[in-house]
Every structure is written in structure tokens, then in C-alpha cells.
């Protein structure tokens, strides 16, 4: 049978794709499917319990697992820094898109945190957050003393403020309770979760999002800007009516990816900086999956948590997609 040129091309293309496809099947699709199957079992690699198919039992247990919900809330809380990080990236990209002398050096400097070892950065921030001798609290203390803030607060409200204990404190800006999902006024303040958010913003502002914005700004059609300027538009009007709508697809992509990254994130920070503490306040869902699978060896349960996380990410992405698509005109 004579093969057509098209058929030959398909075979050649398949040949080129095969190594990648095989790798994907063996190292990605296979484990994903395996984890789905295992989520329906009580698989424990310590063999402390006999293997059994438990079907939806893990998911039911998970629904009643207070730790899971607490760590879910922690994960969402840590994502509160995303809007600031995205806005910061945009502002930085706008600044770095200016035609200035030595702009390449500035761009390199701001991108530096992204190419530096994450562990090294986290250890550095751990030192910065030292409650007594860290430079952050030194500045806060100096400000409090120099401007007599505590004296003023005491005179006005009969109260005073002290610098936060950062990585050692369970407090947070929303006053989330440590032991159950809910609020507790005594927990209001700054603590480990906020410390991680601040560090995350610092790293993300000059990161890949900034590069994406910068690339998009480079392609911004200057004739549109000039047309707007000819119509008398000021800088803010140009940004609002030309630049921002033009950046909408980039923003959409960044928002979607940031949400996905946020829901999956928090592991390295917790592992390096806090060990999930204090009192579990920096445990995120990804860290919980790790703890369940590789510290408590309940692989079946950990698989169930992974799949719930996947479903949450899927739903959030879908919502993002639906809502954001309306705003993306380019």
C-alpha cells in the first residue's frame, strides 16, 4: 500500500513527539492517574494498616478534617498578597519600560531575586524578621521612638504598640483563629503569615510577572498612545484608556497563573522558615499533602487532598476565565 506524503509526515511528526509523549505518560499522566486511584484507598506505605479500597471515605474524612480547613484558610490568606504583587509588577514594568540610561542594569537588578536561590532568600528574610535584632523591627522601633508614637497613642487612646514578632507570632491582619476556622479578635496583628506574604510580594514584584508586563509594554503600539495624546489625554488617561486595556490579556494570564501558583504554594517558605508553625499557622495545603504523604505516610489520604486541591484550582481557574474574559478585549 502506498503511503501519501501527508501520512509520512504524520509518522515523522509522531516520531519526534514520541519521546516527549512517553515521558509525559510515564512521569506525569501515569502518576496523576495513579494518585486518583490511590485516593480511593487507605494506602499507607508504612503498612501499619492492611490495604483496602475505601472509595470515597478519604474525601468524607477530609470534609470533617479540621486541619485541612485550617490549612486551606492559611493558603487563601497567603494569597492575599497576590493583588499587591501583580500591581507592583505592573508599576515596576511601567518604570522599567522608560527610555532611560542604564535601564538594562535596573532591569537586571530588579529581576535578581527571581534568579537567586529561593532558600538563600528565605534564610535572608528570616534574619530580617528577627524580632529583636532584625533590621525591620529596628526601623519600626526607631520610628516609634523618634516620633513618640507610643506617647501619642497612650495620650489619645490609652494604648501603645510594639513591633511584631513576625515568624514567631500566630497573629494576622484578619484576626483568624489558630485552632478553628473563624475569627478571634485577640489574634489581630502581624505574624508569620503576614511575614511570608511581605516576602512573597518582594520576590514577585520583580519576577516573571514584571517581565511579562515589560514584554507587553514593549509591543504597545505607539500610534495609539500618540493618537490619545493628540486628543489631549494626560498620562493617567493614556494609561487608563490605552495601556491598561492593551495589557488585559497579559493581566488575565498573570492573574490565572498567580491563582494557580498561590493555591499550590507556600511549601518552601513553610519548610525553610517556619516548619509550618507557629502552631500550624503557615501550613498550606501543599505542605499538608507533603506531611500526610511523607511524614505520616498516609499516601491514600494525601492523594485525596491533592485531588481536592486540583478541583479547587480547576474551579477557581474556571471562574477566573469566565470573569476575566469579559474584560479582555484585545
Amino acid at each position: 500500500m502506498k503511503t501519501t506524503r501527508r501520512q509520512r509526515n504524520v509518522v515523522i511528526a509522531a516520531g519526534f513527539l514520541l519521546p516527549n509523549l512517553l515521558g509525559f505518560l510515564v512521569f506525569t499522566a501515569g502518576p496523576v492517574a495513579f494518585s486518583l486511584v490511590m485516593s480511593l484507598s487507605n494506602w499507607n506505605i508504612q503498612h501499619t494498616v492492611p490495604f483496602q479500597w475505601t472509595f470515597l471515605r478519604n474525601f468524607v474524612d477530609l470534609w470533617h478534617d479540621q486541619s485541612f480547613w485550617l490549612y486551606f484558610v492559611n493558603t487563601i490568606y497567603l494569597m492575599l498578597g497576590l493583588p499587591l504583587a501583580i500591581a507592583g509588577s505592573l508599576v515596576l514594568a511601567l518604570l522599567l519600560s522608560q527610555n532611560l540610561r542604564g535601564i538594562t542594569i535596573y532591569r537586571t537588578l530588579f529581576y535578581l531575586p527571581s534568579i537567586t536561590s529561593g532558600i538563600a532568600l528565605m534564610i535572608l528574610w528570616k534574619a530580617l524578621y528577627n524580632p529583636d535584632f532584625g533590621p525591620i523591627n529596628a526601623v519600626i522601633n526607631w520610628t516609634l521612638q523618634t516620633f513618640h508614637i507610643n506617647g501619642i497613642l497612650h495620650a489619645l487612646f490609652g494604648t501603645s504598640v510594639t513591633p511584631p514578632q513576625w515568624l514567631l507570632a500566630t497573629r494576622n491582619l484578619l484576626g483568624l483563629d489558630v485552632e478553628k476556622v473563624g475569627f478571634l479578635p485577640a489574634q489581630w496583628g502581624l505574624g508569620a503569615r503576614d511575614a511570608i506574604i511581605i516576602m512573597g510580594i518582594w520576590i514577585a514584584v520583580g519576577g516573571n510577572n514584571m517581565l511579562l508586563y515589560l514584554a507587553a509594554l514593549t509591543n504597545l503600539p505607539q500610534e495609539l498612545v500618540e493618537a490619545a495624546q493628540l486628543d489631549g489625554a494626560g498620562k493617567w488617561a493614556v494609561f487608563k484608556n490605552v495601556t491598561w486595556p492593551y495589557l488585559a490579556p497579559t493581566t488575565f494570564f498573570i492573574v490565572v497563573m498567580s491563582f494557580i501558583g498561590g493555591l499550590q504554594g507556600g511549601f518552601e517558605q513553610a519548610r525553610v522558615m517556619t516548619g509550618g508553625g507557629p502552631a500550624g499557622t503557615t501550613m498550606t495545603m501543599s505542605y499538608y499533602i507533603y506531611t500526610k504523604a511523607f511524614e505520616e505516610f498516609q499516601v491514600g489520604y494525601a492523594s485525596a487532598v491533592s485531588w481536592v486541591l486540583f478541583i479547587i484550582i480547576f474551579i477557581v481557574t474556571l471562574i477566573n476565565w469566565r470573569l476575566s474574559n469579559k474584560e479582555v478585549n484585545y
Binding site: 489558630v178 507557629p278 502552631a279 500550624g280 506531611t291 498516609q298
Partner: peptide, 18 residues
Amino acid sequence: NAQTAGRIVEKQLDLVRN
């Protein structure tokens, strides 16, 4: 599981220590 028990007790001890 000793690790599970440890995680639970450690969380409470963390609150006492702090």
C-alpha cells in the same frame, strides 16, 4: 501514627511555649 500525634501535641505545646 506517632507523627500525627506529634503534630497535634506539638501545635498545642507551641501555643503554650508562646
